[in-house]
Amino acid sequence: MFVFIIRRLIQCVIVLLTVSLLCFILFQFAGDPVVNMAGKYATIEDIERVRSSLGLDKPFYVQYIRFIGNAAQGNFGMSYVSKMPTLELILERLPATVELAMTAMCIAFIAGVFLGVLVSLKPHSVFSRSIMALSLGGISIPTFLMGILLIMVFAVWLGVLPPFGRGETVNLGFWRSGLITVEGLKHIILPAMTLAMFQLAVLLRLTRGSMREILTEEYVVTAWAKGLPPLKVIFKHALRNALIPVITIAGLQIGEMIAFSIVTETIFQWPGMGNLLVRSIFETDNPVLVTYIMLAALIILAINLVVDILYAYLNPKIRYE
C-alpha cells in the first residue's frame, strides 16, 4: 500500500507538470494581457515597458522555468488585475466552493444511492418507473435551467429560500464557513440542489443497475438462506458489492464539482472559485487562470487517490501490492 501511494504521488507530479506546460502553451495564444493592462491610450513604448516589467518579453521557456521554480515554492504569481497573489485570491474563495460541492455531493450520493437501491428492489412498480423517468429529467435538464427553475419555485413563488449569495459566514481562522449559520444554510440549499441534480440522477441509475445485477448473485441467496433480515441482506451484503463501481464515479464527480461548478456559481452569485474563474477569463488574467487550472488538477488528483484507497478497502480482491 505504501509503495502504491508513493508511486501515485510521483505520477501526480508528472501530471501536474504536463498540465502546467499545456496551460502555458495555450495562453501564449490566448490574447495579450498587456494590451488590456496598459490601458486604451498607451503608446507602444508604454506597452513594451509593461511587458518587460512583467517579464513577458523573455522567451517562452524562460518564462515557464521561472514559473515552475516559483510555483514549487508556493508562489504562483500576481493577478494582473487585482495585483494580489493569485493563490491567495483563489484560496480565499475555495471554502465557498468546497462547501457547495461537498453539500451537493452529500445530497447526490445519499439520495442517489438510496433511491437507486429502492428502485432496484421493485424495478417494475409504479414508484420505480416514476423515479426512473424523473432521473432522465435530472440527466437531460441543463444546470442553468435547473437553477432558474429552482429559483422560480422556491425563491419567487414560494419565497422560502434566498435566490442568490452565500448569506452570513463565520471566519474560523483559515476557513470562512457558511454552514454554521442558519442564513448560510438557507442560502446553500438551492445552489447545492442545482449542482447535485445531475450527479444524483447519474448515481441513481448507476446504483440501480449495479444492485439489480448483484441481487441475482448466489451470495445474496446465501444471505437470505442464513435467515438475515432484509435490511442486512440489501444494505450489507448486496450494497457493499454494488457500491464498488459507484464509488469510482462519485469520486470523479466530487473533483468535477469543486473544479467546475462555474455555471451554478454564476447563476446564484456564489462567491466561489467558479465565479472568479469566469471573471478572470473576461479580464485575460492569465496568472489566475493558470493557478486555477493547476489547483483544479491537484484537487482532482488528490480525490482520485482517495478513491483508489477507498476502492481497495471496499474490494478486497484489489490490494495494491
Binding site: Y219, V221, W224, P229, H237, R240, N241
Partner: peptide, 24 residues
C-alpha cells in the same frame, strides 16, 4: 421463516466461488 432459515434448516450451494460474499 427467518428464524428457521439458517438456524434449523440450512443450505449450501453448488458454486462455492460465488456463494460466499467476496467483500467479507
Amino acid at each position: 421463516m427467518r428464524r428457521i432459515r439458517g438456524n434449523r434448516i440450512a443450505m449450501i450451494f453448488q458454486e462455492p466461488m460465488t456463494s460466499l460474499n467476496p467483500v467479507f
